[in-house]
Design a binder for these strands. Structure first.
Lengths: 227, 227
DNA sequence: ACAAATTTAGACAGGCTTGTCCAATTCGTC
DNA sequence: GACGAATTGGACAAGCCTGTCTAAATTTGT
């Protein structure tokens, strides 16, 4: 049963499962109630463990908070880079490909549980723990924007886009495809699949109006000569 | 001395001043510490009044919080509509006029003290008090976007812009001119004047790349025929 | 099945916070 | 200058929360 593999080096089995369960419950409660309002008893109850177990695993409330942020940051960054890797390198239909990419990014990274929780914790506690979120800032948005900019630069080089500054274009792309979700994000809500699609479609269309190569009438095919 | 006018109908004079002082201090502390972490003693000290005065004016912590949100919402909406009124109706240099407008909007409404505080309170407590922020949502973003969309529609009608949906254009305009300030906003920071200008400039240029009327070579002047 | 480690439930002290009460003081007005 | 309202500082009870401790129950590995 269990998980199939069972390495003999690790003494505890359900031990780690409980740790994850506590961190997940803590993330939920910290987000819902704020750091000061979060109650260890409530976290323990929501994780299905006793209060003492929470203390056994994480020491105190502040260490638990740090563990939550680290876990969320790690999972979110992994998701973001997996999604970035799906960016259309050799687009057949640039508009459709960018829309699909934007929808994936929103669904899997920005609107999912981890993404919404991490964003709220950053907004609420970022000023109080500047060093804690420095890692997020560098590993998350910093590398995301950079990676996205590199992809845009590649598309520009291949003749699909006419871009001045790829970094600016990357930030504006993300801003545009999220333009219609701002209010929902602010109130911590979860946009519907349809809202995500609409925002992405409108955003990509505007993005391409601004940055699609317009000069050559048959430019779309011309770029393929390089391949 | 004082404020010049002194209407005899109002019994208290410094009374109202203290109330405002308490609300301002409370806004600061609620934002910094969160609702649960906000300490009435600290609010009183920061307002320069005794704790009892806070209770005399506002009853309890929750009523004080509601008063803070109402005050911030009112002041922010007033600022936003004053700024919207400065939107360029008869632009001489559309790019420069839109950039100046975007800078004013950011400086006076989004990055100022009230704007940052209100945003943070909405993000932190919006889920807990949905009805409290309903007023903000309708009066603030709702009417702002609508008013901005109307201005864009007017510019489109006058031949300065080629816009499909004015509401979409309004949201995308705001998203674009704030695209480079997202991280700073997330961490509650205050962008420099130069950052605001750069983000607005890049945003407006992309916006005009997408929406400026491009068909007629001398289109810029053609629109003036209507005047 | 046995032994060690982990988990549990509950009690507990210590500290902090909210909200109230009250006497003394200050402030604004007539 | 005198009156009334507002403000102050402090004491106070009640409740909540964190973090620790302990003994019993449970789970895990062998």
């Amino acid at each position: 049963m269990k998980h199939g593999v069972s390495p003999d080096t690790f003494p505890p089995r359900s031990h780690e499962a409980k740790r994850v369960s506590v961190v997940d419950a803590a993330a939920s409660v910290f987000c819902r109630e704020g750091y000061a309002g979060a109650n260890i008893d409530l976290i323990a109850a929501e994780a299905g463990v006793s209060r003492q177990t929470v203390y056994n695993h994480h020491g105190d409330k502040e260490k638990l908070f740090v563990a939550v942020v680290h876990d969320l940051t790690e999972r979110c960054n992994a998701g973001i880079f997996a999604t970035i890797a799906s960016f259309p390198d050799q687009p057949t239909d640039l508009e459709a490909d960018l829309i699909a990419f934007a929808v994936r990014m929103n669904r899997n990274c920005i609107c999912n549980r981890d993404g919404r929780f991490l964003r709220k914790l950053i907004q609420a506690e970022g000023e109080r723990y500047p060093e804690l979120f420095a890692e997020w800032r560098e590993q998350g948005p910093g590398r995301t924007w950079s990676a996205l900019a590199a992809r845009f630069a590649r598309l520009a080089f291949a003749g699909h886009l006419a871009i001045g500054d790829p970094d600016v274009a990357a930030r504006q792309f993300l801003a545009l495809v999220n333009a219609e979700l701002q209010i929902t994000f602010m109130l911590g809500g979860m946009p519907t699949e349809e809202e995500v699609l609409r925002s992405a479609t409108n955003g990509v269309r505007t993005f391409l109006s601004a940055f699609a190569r317009k000069k050559s009438p048959a430019g779309k095919q011309a770029a393929l000569v390089h391949a």
